[in-house]
Write a protein that binds this DNA or RNA. Sequence first.
DNA 1: TTACCCATTTTTGTATCCAATTTATAAATT
DNA 2: AATTTATAAATTGGATACAAAAATGGGTAA
Lengths: 221, 221
Amino acid sequence: MAERTSAKRTGDQAIRVADALREKIVSGDLKPGEPLRQERLAVLFETSRMPVRDALRLLEAEGLVQMPPNRGAIVAPLDPEEFREVYEMRAALETLALRLAIPELTNSQIDRAAAIQDKAEASDLEHFGALNKAFHSALYEPCARPRLLAQIAALNETGDRYLRIAAAQLDYTRRSHQEHRDLLEACSRRDGVEACEILRRHIEAAGEALVDRLTARLPAS
Amino acid sequence: MAERTSAKRTGDQAIRVADALREKIVSGDLKPGEPLRQERLAVLFETSRMPVRDALRLLEAEGLVQMPPNRGAIVAPLDPEEFREVYEMRAALETLALRLAIPELTNSQIDRAAAIQDKAEASDLEHFGALNKAFHSALYEPCARPRLLAQIAALNETGDRYLRIAAAQLDYTRRSHQEHRDLLEACSRRDGVEACEILRRHIEAAGEALVDRLTARLPAS
DNA sequence: TTACCCATTTTTGTATCCAATTTATAAATT
DNA sequence: AATTTATAAATTGGATACAAAAATGGGTAA
């Protein structure tokens, strides 16, 4: 019976489940506060409880799932205050990454980031999110700090949940594109101080705008 | 086989195991790279493999354990580069916490921090670590950012592993105490910029000193 | 209506069992 | 003798069944 078509090799079940669940949570398919029954998930993903529990622990560490003792796992509720925290931390950590990366940035890496930005400006909203992330990653990666980059990625994922429901990107993309251009210009001058200042404002501006939207849309408590 | 000798069926076994393991790892009782066999741990903690695996996942998320697929869990190896990352992130996040906390700081809270510092200066090295942590926490907590504070706590735990083996505190406590005094002074003036600058230097100085010690003591690999 | 009790649901923990993979060991060949 | 190969042992990853504790919900009685 284990002769299933899919190559479900050992060792990746928990990660497979976690990836699928993360996608469902970030995309809003699973709603905040919704209970995540272990047995149901095991059936849904055609596996057993153990990988499901592993996956839930993984997502709990990422902040996408909450596991109150004896009460079962739930999709982490959305809270504008939490989002404020996330973008404050992003501003702090991403400027750190950029500051460390700039001395290591090669011209070809800057060119690649510029190419990503070109594509982002030409694409629709559907792909904007991924390209936006790729642009930032391209600038941060040369800092060679795996833990820092992982933390930034996790914060972005949490932030994406809020982005999705606010959908405030429409009137923000133009400003974002200009800020990306300014950022690239500062990077090519290897002006770390200026680049970090632009980046900090870039992140904080997006955060502030979204917090305003979210407080209007979500229950205050 | 109803072998219920003790009434420890209540509560979360995984957390109990994780706490015990974390203590053993941070204290250096379990050495870096040492394999953590699930069966052995289950016997040691008088439980079964499932809570042990839960605990290992928990500690993996905290960065104290590594779990290469199919190769078993090991105590996360120590790496001076990782420690550098940790204190860089601490500097970024703790200054953020302090900056957000200062406008909310009451006089009584500052007095309490000063009292902790008094005790720290009078105590021996054994208690210095805990009091040092308490001093910083007292200044950060008013920022009211649970995620940020949790992240800072996790980074401190990881950093403690390195502190333990370097034992460079001896010649550092005096300088640390002076910096804490300066920090308190800036806080009571509600000078956020100055306080953050002192804190940033405080963390970075401790980090740099330790990285030097660590690179000399650990395999360069 | 309100408070309490009880059955159901769900999580949590235990005990095995099996398969896949890694690691260690022994044998064979060059 | 050293390297490679084949085999065996150990260990993890995963599945299933079952028991126990806690939460949930509903119904009933005061």
